[in-house]
Nucleic acid binder design. Structure first.
Lengths: 236, 236
DNA sequence: GCGTCAACAAATTTCGATATTTCGATGTCA
DNA sequence: TGACATCGAAATATCGAAATTTGTTGACGC
């Protein structure tokens, strides 16, 4: 395998490598929602054989990023308004529960990490408005780290696992609105407010702000999705 | 493939078939928690080749029933007291949310199905006390159907998906206490109470009863687990 | 003891063979 | 003529066996 590396963690096997690359391409939208995943094409594109490829796709199916139908193949899971609402609501439930526990348990290390990641995110937000689309991956990374830091003191592995699953799903939607309409609302102020409430241990307020944050993001995504859908309707 | 069939649904591919059989064997305890899954042995035991087997195990890893470590192989996910508490709590969160929505939305069909599955479960409970261990799979099936019927009117695919994930996890634990100590509390009365509250649309009460039901089951499992652990301590 | 290296066991991957589905061409019937 | 069924050929998914790579174990020398 020599030097094929995935994301932050090196891939120990070709299946890992394929899993990480394909997941990243699905979340970013490089592999469009609903599109057929032709095994041979993917095998060539990512330079892995059928077996590790199929293994990677099976894992992605477990993450609900890929849909598989026996003897018919694999598809990128499709996006819809109904699913957006569903993901947003359930994520709110999980995210607030995790945040509450994290705030109650978090110590000085946690506070520092929340602080640090918030500043990183502020920087990334500034670059996003300056540089536009180029900075999207950077912002997504910082955004993920900030939200992860907030719940990092939560001591429930299951809450964290489910949270991660749903975060990935929302990221797919968010990327659409970032590409089509840009970060056109005061996300920074929302993040600041959540940050402040969290470090001040105002648990309920932090949860309420998080819930609102998710809802507002969803509203924005909804607009982008509806625009995309009506555009498809007129051109296709 | 001819006539290899899995559970209620026929397996369309060998990978499906292997997935269903292995999952069933993990949940039932036939494949013990923490045990190494040797690929060659499994390949012979289930009569499938490496490719479908690996695909099945990859999917099971997505369900958190199997743990995989690159270049080292696959293990059955282990059970622990901490994990039991975690699963129980998060499942309570998901299950009550789903139940609440189901009660609010459920129509006559839903009521009938809750009714029907409750009676089936009552029958299965009776047989479990009469026949003992033989009737465990039957009871588990009826129990699953009852709890599924309760939340069947919930309109959130994600809540249902997560609920299914966590239900499987708890089933693993429950099987332990069913084997070691039998159904030694008034589970039937708890089920009846939940049933009554649900069909009477007493949402809050039904949720509270469900939460208590999960907690009591966990307490019983905990005792069985602790007994098993101390036994292992003295013999091993 | 401690590190090194060879032999072994196991997981991973490649590759070719097989089975299934899809799609377009052809023919049939209303 | 148009809608629909039927039949291949091509595309695609699926699978098993063999080859490769990696990890583990235990013997050997230092």
């Amino acid at each position: 395998m020599a030097e094929r590396r995935g994301e932050s963690v090196v891939a120990r096997t070709l299946a890992d490598y394929a899993y990480q690359r394909i997941r990243s391409d699905i979340v970013s939208g490089a592999l469009p929602a609903g599109s057929k995943l032709r095994l041979e094409a993917l095998s060539q594109q990512y330079d892995v054989g059928m077996s590790p490829l199929r293994e990677a796709l099976a894992r992605l199916a477990g993450d609900a990023l890929v849909v598989v139908e026996g003897q018919r193949g694999f598809w990128v899971a499709s996006l819809s308004l109904a699913d957006l609402d569903d993901v947003t609501h359930v994520r709110g439930l999980i995210e607030t529960e995790a945040l509450q526990r994290s705030i109650e348990r978090g110590g000085p290390d946690w506070e520092r990490e929340v602080e640090r990641s918030f500043e990183e995110l502020s920087e990334a937000e500034a670059r996003l408005s300056r540089e536009g689309e180029t900075a999207v991956p950077l912002w997504e990374d910082a955004n993920r780290r900030f939200h992860e830091a907030l719940v990092s003191a939560c001591d429930s592995p299951w809450l964290k696992r489910l949270r991660h699953l749903l975060y990935q799903q929302s990221e797919r939607y968010r990327r659409i609105s970032l590409i089509t309409s840009g970060p056109n609302r005061c996300v920074h102020e929302e993040h600041r407010a959540i940050h402040d409430a969290a470090v001040k241990r105002q648990t309920l307020k932090a949860c309420r702000l998080t819930e609102e944050h998710l809802q507002r993001t969803a509203v924005q995504v909804r607009a982008a999705l509806e625009a995309a859908e009506s555009a498809r309707g007129t051109t296709g």
